[in-house]
């Protein structure tokens, strides 16, 4: 268990009612980045096009995103794995669970995407993932200040989207959780008074 998780637990114990909702507009922007950029090489095999409807996309918008693919199809990478292997000497990993598969989650993904720089030998390298085989797709290593800002925004959006993709029920879970915890707090308070009442018979 990492410290992150421990602090997260303490935080949630203290402020369990105030857990932030994912921003749907940001998730939709991130979905576009995922479909148009990431999905070229990476699959998101546990995400279906129809799942986008849950993010507030209209059916027409999803139709435009999926092209010839079916509504119930998963987001399989547009390159064949064999071609990817020849090109990058590795098959890019599936991204559906990436936000859960790295310590740091969405923050890790953001830091990795924006972590590209040009090293002393003039080669593109990455602060977070040395030896990464993924190219600097947004070309942040060469970007000027304004370009950097726009890339950082895209990275934030797609990181948020991938966090949603790794755990699409998170909002439903927290919403239900508030009622469940509320119910048990009430029940436990009642049980406490009932216990006091029953034990009074012994006085």
């Amino acid at each position: 268990m990492s410290n992150n998780k421990l602090f997260g637990l303490i935080f949630c114990l203290m402020f369990s009612a105030g857990v932030a909702h994912a921003d749907e507009a940001q998730l939709r922007r991130g979905a576009h980045v995922a479909v148009e950029v990431c999905n070229t090489c990476h699959s998101l095999k546990y995400v279906k096009y129809s799942d986008f409807l849950k993010l507030g996309f209209s059916k027409a918008e999803v139709d435009a995103m999926r092209g010839t693919k079916g509504m119930a199809d998963p987001l399989i990478s547009q390159m064949a794995p064999a071609d990817e292997l020849a090109m990058f000497s590795t098959v890019p990993p599936d991204l559906s669970l990436m936000a859960k598969a790295r310590d740091g989650g969405a923050n890790y993904i953001y830091a990795m995407i924006t972590g590209f720089y040009t090293d002393a030998k003039g080669q593109t390298a990455n602060h977070v993932f040395p030896g990464i085989k993924m190219p600097d797709v947004f070309m942040i290593a060469q970007a000027d200040a304004a370009g950097r800002q726009s890339i950082e925004q895209k990275a934030r959006d797609v990181s948020a989207f991938l966090e949603w993709a790794s755990d699409p029920q998170a909002d439903e879970r927290r919403a239900l959780g508030r009622y469940v915890i509320g119910y048990f707090v009430l029940l436990t308070v009642l049980l406490y008074f009932l216990k006091k009442k029953i034990w009074k018979r012994l006085d």
Binding site: C12, R173, G177, V180, I181, F184, T188
Partner: peptide, 19 residues
């Protein structure tokens, strides 16, 4: 009741804590 509150806080708000 006390146990369930702690257990369900993890289940609903921090379910990946032990994964």
């Amino acid at each position: 009741g006390i146990f369930m509150i702690v257990y369900l806080l993890i289940v609903f708000f921090k379910p990946d804590l032990f994964i």
